[in-house]
């Protein structure tokens, strides 16, 4: 089973849910993998302390123009959707940081004047944190394209265990790339107007992708009732409510997982996985 843990709003507790679900499964001797797809700021490793044994670079192929062969016809610039290659009166200019690496310019150049060169934008790593399989991606500072790193990370998703995909926040391309293909989307939110607003966007994406979804409300006993009311109206199940607890917040700030601070909560996370399993079974 692959569960994508996502949220519209950042800072709602995606990583908290991912790592504690993983810890609860591992403690119950169930095989589990955590894949941190929040490649702009991967932080699950801060809590799980994995031993990373394997590393691979993530490159984009960007165009290099042979000025001798180029006759400035401008086809490359016309086909580029990112304005990353521009044909000026006397030369062609490439903006590597705008290039998505689609290869259209190279494929369409009528003079074979464009070749492709790799440009490193990030890396992926994998290893183990005890019994937990772990993988994460990291986008280099200053880079804008998270999707290729997430896409590379997807190659490492396992088929032999419960996979927990810690998605990037938001509802745009990197989040879509992280959650697509998962069996279930777990949306973590907080009971505030901001949390509700961004939850709606993320839920819309999951529905557009035709994915079953459920909600976790973090700090559920503070804030307002808006999220609960909306979920009831939309018939989206609220699968877990995590209370606000200063002990949890303090442990988090020291890199200590919730289940280490409050081990009595482990059954709550096992119930969460069972509830997801039951929803998927009912649908099948």
């Amino acid at each position: 089973m692959k569960i994508a843990i996502a949220s519209g709003k950042g800072g709602t507790g995606k990583t908290t849910v991912s790592i504690n679900l993983a810890l609860a499964l591992a403690a119950a001797k169930l095989p589990v993998q955590v894949v941190d797809c929040d490649v702009e700021e991967p932080n699950a490793a801060l809590f799980l302390h994995p031993e990373l044994k394997e590393r691979a670079g993530v490159d984009l192929l960007i165009p290099q123009v042979d000025a001798e062969a180029c006759d400035l016809c401008g086809v490359c610039s016309e086909v580029c959707q990112s304005n990353a290659i521009v044909t000026l009166a006397k030369r062609v200019l490439v903006f590597p940081e705008l290039c998505h690496g689609c290869g259209s310019c190279t494929a369409n150049c009528p003079h074979g004047a464009i070749s492709e060169v790799p440009r490193r934008i990030g890396e992926v790593e994998r290893g183990n944190a005890g019994a937990i399989h772990f993988a994460q991606g990291r986008l280099n500072v200053g880079e804008a394209l998270a999707v290729p790193v997430v896409r590379r990370l997807r190659e490492w998703l396992r088929d032999d265990c419960t996979v927990l995909i810690d998605a990037p926040p938001g509802a745009s391309c990197p989040m879509v790339e992280a959650i697509r293909g998962a069996d279930f989307v777990l949306l973590v939110t907080e009971p505030t107007p901001f949390g509700l607003h961004d939850l709606k966007g993320a839920a819309e994406v999951a529905r557009e992708l035709g994915m079953p979804l459920g909600v976790v409300i973090n700090r559920a006993d503070i804030g307002d009732a808006g999220v609960e009311q909306w979920c009831a109206r939309e018939e989206i199940p609220v699968l877990l409510r995590i209370p606000f607890d200063r002990r949890i917040a303090e442990a988090y700030s020291e890199g200590i997982p919730l289940l280490t601070a409050r081990p009595e909560l482990a059954p709550v996370f096992l119930d969460l996985q069972r509830a997801i399993g039951a929803i998927l079974e009912a649908q099948a």
């Binding site: 610039s77 990112s82 304005n83 990353a84 521009v86 044909t87 000026l88 903006f95 705008l98």
Partner: peptide
């Protein structure tokens, strides 16, 4: 993205 580049072109 790249509206400025396009304008310069």
């Amino acid at each position: 993205h790249g509206a400025g580049i396009q304008a310069a072109q």
